[in-house]
Design a protein around this nucleic acid. Structure first.
Lengths: 190, 190, 190, 190
DNA sequence: GGCTAACCGAGACGGTACGTCTAGTCTTACT
DNA sequence: AGTAAGACTAGACGTACCGTCTCGGTTAGCC
């Protein structure tokens, strides 16, 4: 993607228009035609930058929330996980991020390239950060050495995404706490 | 939906065409136009029965696998769960059900009505069956009385759906076994 | 067409509905579907009786105005023609007959069978009546023996239909009178 | 309508396809869908240029015969009218112009906008040319000063259109000659 | 400071599918 | 047997976007 001042401004304008329109009319009714019109850009300019509506939405969302899920390390592994996951569900559970992120995941189900990109650019980094934090705690002796960290990670994320995508029940702090409780009661935390 | 012999035959033909075409060209490229043509039906006949492509796909999939996930009860709760979840991941993890089911969930992210229907007609019944089996086991004293069954359910399903939808890693029996292991080690099984 | 009491009643109801709907929404938007619904008849019942929308409209119009253009014979050929043609332009120039008749002729341009039927059942009888009246007058010595009656007929009808169908100028009594004037001044009247 | 080279080529291609298809299958079965396909154009490209099938047909026909009915002036008014009207009936009476022109007039009976356009772009200019020729002749003293030119015009055109549209008898040179004969015998020629 | 090459907006273009409509046929149940 | 009701196949309608493509009209370096 172009890095010249002019190009960057166009890129920004298009991503901004994407999020605005997405918030207004929902992803399903979003069209590249409308985004270009809203951004005052030609369709060509959009297609030059992104191969698909999904890719554009992903970039727009990640651009918007570049650094919002950084990890704390206060030494208290449970509290840190709690803090971070509370922040995550606050993000996922509310507009504008929530609905658009849900739509992005939906789109990824039809578009393997998008699914892979989403994994690499958002899911995997998030996962890795959590794993790193768990690893640190284990190395400090706060968690059982035999704890399967990948599984722990999956047991934390899975149920939240299940609620988010499948049952559409609200993502509450209380639910996060129950999950953490069961994890640390049962999976080897000390 | 019509139940007359003629109507039922048409309904069947359309659902069959949907699954065939879906398997051949994938959900993303599926069109009601093409389905109707394949089924030798008029478009109106399709629209009379289903309000959207997603609803049609859901009916077609559920019609195809009406009774495939019934629950065993051999008295051994762990073995029964294992049997049933192995069957479930075999279904989800392979064509033709897997990719189309994934696409259906994707579509549901853009279409709340479809999401709700999917929940009511497929997710909730499956969940309820598992919960009932767990409840029986608990009543028989095989599980701790304090076990949070909903949470147990979520901890089983969530990670599998996370793999299925987000990371797209294969759903293996081995992974299911690890999940069950950690659950029964940690969540109150005796 | 059926002549049984029941059949005749159905036929009437359908023709009435045709004229009503035609007057309300115009011929262009008329559909057999809507006519059947308005008449409380099945579509089959309409198709059993008429092969096309145009045929139905023609029957309906002719049924409505079965006997309205009979010819007077007062002995004064000019006055009789004047009377009769004034009546004709009053009919053609005003709703409900005018617009529907115009539409019927329009339809006949696409449908030779309809054109022929219209000719046989409406145009030719009208023409023949006028010719008969002219013939009587000629035989009585009121018109030149050399007068080409067919041509006289055409010179009377043609300009009126030209106005009616092509230029859509109003059909006035004054215009009829000018036509008659020129005909009897110039075409062999004494 | 676009006048750019590209646009003009598309416009031409579509009009050509219209006339071809119209000649092949007749106006009644003509569809914009088929025209676009034949022209290798998108439907939008057709709809961008013409509001209706009738408008497209009219443009196509007038484009085909832009200059074919120009008027001679040899000084002999009767001969000139004869020449010109013979040419006109040859055009109307034969394919491809005849049947499509008939259909166009038919369509105009259902579509007032089309009727008006047809009048302005084809009928009125033709009429005006004939009137101008008659006026010249009158000014040269070849016709009676009291001759009602509009009426003369109507007496020439009307019967021909009546044959063309209503009775569907062939338009022959002989009939034209009879009409002219009666007009100039009786309507004030010297 | 002028030239040229890339980029841009605008939007026409060939397509595809949409969801609606009507045609004309066929089936069902009623009278 | 004829009917009302309406489902059925077929296919055109006019619309909306897709992704590609011209078209002029700015910029933005690079001489």
């Amino acid at each position: 993607m172009t890095d010249s001042p002019r190009g960057a401004a166009r890129t920004e304008a298009i991503m901004r228009a994407t999020l605005e329109l997405g918030a207004e009319i929902g992803y399903a009714k979003l069209s590249i035609e409308a985004i270009a019109a809203r951004a005052g850009a030609g369709k060509h300019t959009v297609y030059r930058r992104w191969p698909s509506k999904g890719a554009l939405l992903m970039d727009s969302l990640l651009h918007l929330h570049r650094s919002s899920l950084d990890y704390p390390d206060t030494g208290d592994i449970v509290a840190d996980l709690r803090t971070q996951i509370h922040a995550a569900v606050d993000l996922l559970g509310n507009p504008p991020f929530g609905p658009l992120y849900r739509a992005l995941i939906g789109e990824a189900q039809h578009d393997p390239a998008l699914a892979e990109a989403l994994n690499e650019r958002f899911i995997a980094p998030q996962t890795e950060m959590t794993l790193a934090r768990l690893r640190t705690a284990r190395d400090q002796g706060l968690l059982s050495p035999s704890l399967d960290l990948d599984l722990a990670m999956a047991v934390l994320s899975g149920p939240l995404y299940f609620r988010f995508l499948i049952t559409r029940e609200p993502l509450t702090h209380e639910y996060v706490d129950r999950l953490l409780q069961s994890l640390f009661d049962g999976m080897g935390a000390r």
